[in-house]
């Protein structure tokens, strides 16, 4: 039997299997087990959650391979890990480790201020952040097989996640009203490959799966993003920086499935304990905003 590995369909296919699910940041194998038992569809293995990266300052890099391997050994669900924007050697290391998805992430300190990784060069799939349609399509052009809107990681403030999801989804809606001859100029204006602009118009959605990320902290936040039209959610600091992580994780999973059912949303939101201590995005100096990283 002839088989083909590492095709774009295979890479994008795993993201399709994650849809309707919650991907949780974890920093230990123990947390990964808690996430899996709570119903996470995948975990993001990292040394520090974004809220701690913010607090810690300094340069944030790929996590220790030993930690990532511990987490891979602890759970049966897919394991993702982050590399710095443009740091293709960190990505080569993660590919060697066999992680299931690489997040080329603005949460880490960028390694290249002009170029993202050429993701077509890799057998493992990549997910990348975006704030608008042009950025999403540039990343897909570079080979990303999954997109997440960036939001503002480590804040517990959902406002940027909403802004970015509304921007991308609103731009797609407007794109569908455009005449075909207008697409050439539009592609130039948003600095995106023409073929992907055309494909997005035809599909009426991004050509790959699109999750929301950055600042989600409650079941209602997850359901809000799902109702806005994303395919699933990432929750970073929001779970393991809260008072009762196992319970909150489970509640966010349930809210992501039953995102249109207020009765269940009310039920799962009850007695959840302390949410993560939030930090309003408008209080953060412009130069400290993570979402601005990436080009």
């Amino acid at each position: 039997m002839e088989t083909q590995v590492a095709t774009f369909e295979v890479k994008a296919g795993l993201a399709q299997m994650l849809k309707g699910g919650v991907i949780m940041d974890v920093v230990t194998a123990e947390q990964a087990k808690i996430a899996e038992n709570a119903g996470a569809c995948a975990v993001m293995a990292l040394e520090r959650v974004p809220a701690d990266i913010r607090a810690h300052g300094g340069v944030a890099r790929m996590s220790d391979p030993g930690l990532i391997e511990d987490i891979m050994a602890a759970v049966s669900i897919p394991v993702m890990a982050k590399v710095r924007i443009g740091h293709f050697v960190e990505a080569q290391i993660l590919e060697y480790l066999g992680v299931d998805y690489v997040d080329e992430s603005e949460v880490l300190t960028p390694a290249d201020e002009a170029h993202h990784i050429n993701k077509h060069d890799f057998k493992i799939p990549f997910v990348c952040g975006c704030r608008n349609l042009g950025e999403a399509l540039r990343r897909i052009g570079e080979g990303a097989a999954m997109i997440r809107t960036k939001g503002e990681a480590g804040t517990g403030d959902v406002v940027e996640a909403v802004r970015h999801a509304r921007t991308v989804l609103g731009e797609i809606r407007r794109l569908q009203t455009m005449a075909d001859e207008e697409l050439y100029t539009y592609a130039k204006d948003i600095q995106a490959p023409y073929a992907l602009v055309k494909q997005t118009k035809e599909l009426g959605r991004l050509p790959v799966v699109n999750f929301a990320a950055g600042g989600l902290a409650t079941p209602a936040d997850a359901a809000l993003m799902m109702q806005l039209g994303v395919d699933g959610v990432f929750v970073g600091s929001g779970i393991f920086k809260s008072g009762d992580p196992a319970r909150r994780a489970e509640a966010i999973v349930k809210a992501t499935t039953h995102y249109k059912n207020p009765e269940i949303l009310a039920e799962v939101s009850r007695n959840l304990g302390e949410p993560m201590v939030g930090r309003q995005v408008t209080d953060i100096p412009q130069e400290e905003l993570l979402a601005k990283r990436g080009w």
Partner: peptide, 8 residues
């Protein structure tokens, strides 16, 4: 894992 996923 995912690297071994395939089409056939």
């Amino acid at each position: 894992r995912q690297v071994q996923s395939f089409e056939a």
